[in-house]
């Protein structure tokens, strides 16, 4: 960051109208994709095509014949499992992001106020934590507790908390250097009020976008943990575990090895697109970039 965002020239090639259209298209496509999965999760609470442990369909039946996508190796309806799996995916995403936000924002604000060696130590600590893959931390935590969805969510949230904390620290430091914060301080506003009134409102848009991205990463991390057998235990139909179970029969029954992956990708792309669209809407300074 060498140039303050405000000083950046507006991109000449992009007409404002076209930019707005693209932005709303991104947001709309994202909402549709993520909304589809969310709809699946909501419907699954009210109605399921088959009972979750109904094995009457016969093992590894192909798509059609009463089973939209066929059955798994125990004869359970695949589509029913996909529906209940959407609850786990969304729940894991939301839970992890909540943990990450609570931990990361608190730690980040504290680190931003730290000075000198304490600042160096804290940011180095966060750097090390970030370099450790989420999955590794998660494996340690799952070993300490047991393989449940809660352990997985806690572990993913902790790992992501470090990322959120580092981002928060950078954002808050930038706001703290602004003249209006100095003005607020010299006019006698207390630190807590400065943080709540000036700092958080200014860092919130960027944080919200990052948290949306973390949601997608959390969904992928939970799927990875479940694939390794460290997520929600059976008979919970986590998409990651469904993929792991279907791996051996990929060529004979491809539906089971493809469908959960497709839904995972749709959900994560949907949320990422929402994040991109949100950033363009919330944060005018980065509007011209769309990474």
């Amino acid at each position: 960051m060498t140039t303050p965002d405000v000083l950046r020239p507006v991109e000449p090639q992009t007409v404002p109208g076209r930019r707005r259209t693209r932005r709303s298209v991104t947001l709309a496509v994202g909402c549709v994709l993520a909304g589809l999965i969310a709809l699946l999760a909501v419907v699954s609470l009210l109605w399921l095509p088959y009972d979750a442990d109904d094995t009457s369909g016969g093992r590894l039946a192909g798509p059609g014949d009463g089973h939209l996508l066929g059955t798994d190796k125990l004869g359970r309806d695949l589509f029913t499992q996909l529906m209940t799996g959407s609850r786990i995916a969304i729940g894991a995403g939301l839970g992890s992001v909540l943990v990450a936000a609570a931990l990361g924002v608190t730690l980040g604000v504290l680190a931003a106020f730290a000075q000198g060696w304490l600042d160096d130590t804290l940011s180095a600590f966060l750097d090390i934590l970030i370099a450790f893959p989420t999955l590794l931390l998660a494996m340690l935590i799952v070993a300490a507790r047991s393989a449940t969805l809660g352990s997985a969510v806690l572990a993913i949230g902790l790992a992501q908390g470090a990322v959120v904390a580092r981002l928060t620290r950078i954002l808050v430091k930038r706001v703290l250097a602004q003249d209006y914060v100095t003005a607020a301080r010299t006019s006698g506003t207390s630190w807590p009020r400065t943080v709540l009134g000036h700092v958080l409102p200014n860092v919130w848009p960027t944080l919200a976008v990052n948290l949306a991205l973390q949601f997608g990463l959390a969904v992928l991390a939970e799927a990875g943990l479940s694939y390794l057998g460290l997520g929600a235990p059976p008979p919970n139909a986590s998409w990651g575990r469904m993929l792991q179970e279907a791996q051996a029969t990929f060529t004979t029954a491809p539906a089971g090895a493809l469908a959960p992956g497709v839904l995972l990708v749709l959900l994560v792309i949907g949320v990422n697109l929402i994040a991109d669209g949100l950033r363009d809407t919330l944060d005018p300074a980065t509007r011209r970039r769309s990474t």
Binding site: G224, L264, N272
Partner: peptide
Amino acid sequence: QLGIAVPVFW
């Protein structure tokens, strides 16, 4: 965009 959404094991 697609690549970052694909689970590595899948």
